[in-house]
């Protein structure tokens, strides 16, 4: 067996993990505030489309990235207005956002469908360390967003578990009424984190369009990455660090099919490898559904429940 092929596969699976990791960490922040986010797929598509259109128009990759992030954020904000201020059903609104995001992205992306990506995010070599055996290509020859994303995951973890604002966030997600009584502005906390969720999903979509997909394809550029990100949120029990590790594992599962094929290995069969993340997530959910386990591991208690003072 060719060792090199596996090193390339591992290095590539880190790249493949970044869009889903970014979106998943965003969705974790979003859902930790108690607002269910089924709209990730739509936010990623809008982010990817905005980034591609901006890249096409101005040719600047960083400006394009910013546009993608902001477009995702706009959709997040829309989600906030409808579910927080207007108190609509979070589940249905999330699915409506997927339909909306997909429809709008395809409508606006139609003129550039099939077009080659005009600019891309290039990998950089960290001080010549890229030539190191094994570790070089895996750790030191990625692009700047890979490093930024890893730093972001650490920062978000610290924020959730070690900061005052993070404590307020968890309080709002577990028991908005109690948080409210403590003087925490529930709606404001929710708005901020729903917005963050949108921005990060937009970033994930933009990264996919600018660093991974060689051209814009209406059907395939994002196709399902948002759902995988949602899977990760549950799989990681709403923990950013685990979500990143899970993203690399999922990325490897997605990417390694090709390596298994080229290496002529037929085990495990592709179809099982593709289904594994989802089946595992179902298993995790079933195993953690005892009341005790749910308290220790599970979703924020108030997830999916709109909060309004006068209708407690």
């Amino acid at each position: 067996m060719n060792d090199n092929a596996w090193i390339i596969a591992i290095a590539a699976s880190i790249g493949a993990a970044i869009p889903i990791a970014l979106a998943a960490v965003g969705a974790i922040l979003h859902e930790r505030s108690g607002v269910l986010n089924l709209g990730v797929e739509g936010m990623m598509l809008i982010g990817a489309m905005a980034a591609f259109l901006a890249a096409d128009a101005w040719g600047n990759v960083w400006l394009a990235l910013v546009c993608g992030v902001l477009a995702g954020g706009a959709l997040g904000l829309l989600h906030g207005v409808i579910t927080i201020s207007l108190r609509a059903n979070q589940i249905v609104t999330g699915l409506a956002l997927v339909i909306f995001g997909t429809g709008l992205a395809k409508f606006l992306g139609e003129p550039v469908n099939g077009l080659k990506r005009p600019v891309k995010i290039d990998p950089l070599e960290v001080a010549g360390l890229g030539d190191l055996p094994i570790l070089g290509p895996v750790l030191f020859a990625q692009d700047v967003l890979v490093y930024a994303s890893i730093a972001l995951v650490v920062a978000v973890s610290l924020y959730i578990y070690r900061s005052r604002a993070g404590l307020a966030l968890r309080a709002v997600g577990e028991s908005p009424a109690a948080a409210d009584a403590q003087g925490i502005a529930v709606s404001r906390v929710r708005y901020v984190h729903v917005l963050a969720g949108g921005l990060l999903a937009g970033a994930g979509g933009a990264y996919q369009a600018l660093a991974r997909a060689p051209s814009w394809n209406q059907e395939y550029t994002i196709n399902g990455l948002g759902w995988i990100a949602l899977t990760l949120v549950v799989f990681s029990n709403w923990r950013p660090g685990r979500a990143l590790i899970g993203a690399v594992v999922f990325g490897f599962a997605l990417r390694s099919q090709f390596t298994f094929q080229t290496e002529g290995i037929d085990f495990p069969p592709q179809v099982w490898l593709q289904m594994a993340p989802y089946l595992l997530t179902i298993l995790v959910l079933i195993v953690t559904s005892s009341p005790g386990a749910r308290r220790r591991l599970g979703a924020p208690a108030a997830l999916g429940v709109p909060y309004s003072r006068d209708e407690r």
Partner: peptide, 19 residues
Amino acid sequence: SVALMLEGFILLCFLGGQV
């Protein structure tokens, strides 16, 4: 995709308007 886009707009307005 124009149908999907319009569907999205109608759904979001409807959901927001329910209240």
